[in-house]
Amino acid sequence: MEFVLEAKHLRKEYQDKLALKGLDLQIKPGEIFCLLGQNGAGKSTTINLFLGFIQPTSGAAFINGLEVTRNITKVKEFLAYIPENVMLYPNLTGLENLALFSSLAGYDYQEAEITDYLVRAGLPADAVKRRVSGYSKGMRQKVGIAIAVAKHAKVLLLDEPTSGLDPKASNEFSELLLQLSAQGTAIFMATHDIFRAKEVGTRVGIMREGELVDVLGTTDLNANELEKLYLNYMH
């Protein structure tokens, strides 16, 4: 099987609005696809359709060759998700949160392994055993990354993952994505950040009013050209 993430004429309508107008997309293992677009362009809708949180009006989303709506639980074994704002159980520690989610994903790690995942994701070692209620947004985001990494998923779905992270953390995050991609993980990332998209993306898609208006290979053009192009589409 060639594509681990695939959309076929994926369409989502709400009563008052057409959110996604028949998306066709294929992503291979190791590829990083960055989706650019304004708020309300349909980026989150696309991710939610891949996650099976919402049902498509027509068309289908596939993860690892399985249609999402028909294999709602099974497909989640292959994907990991980092929301824009990672929210965790405030009364549990970072360690316990990671242990819980890994365990639900079918991985029962030893404490040392969990700590290792958290520290590798950038969480300070002394924070590992503190309750999440005292974490900053950035720290929660790192736990979210650790959860995704520890799941060894084939597909990583990211919704504005770097918003709220400081530049240093963002850079570390980019590094991590490149590492994962090198290991064969397919990454689908919705973002506003043109420069980051250019930096990590294999391909960049531009979405406008529910429509994928262009897909560009990042090797073909530099960041400034991409920005110009993007702004062009937006007007």
Binding site: F53, K74, Y81, L88, L104, A105, G106
Partner: peptide, 14 residues
């Protein structure tokens, strides 16, 4: 309300 639902539902669990 505490926002853990999306992360929870992205796990392979019913």
């Amino acid at each position: 309300e505490q926002g853990t639902l999306p992360l929870l539902l992205s796990q392979p669990i019913n």
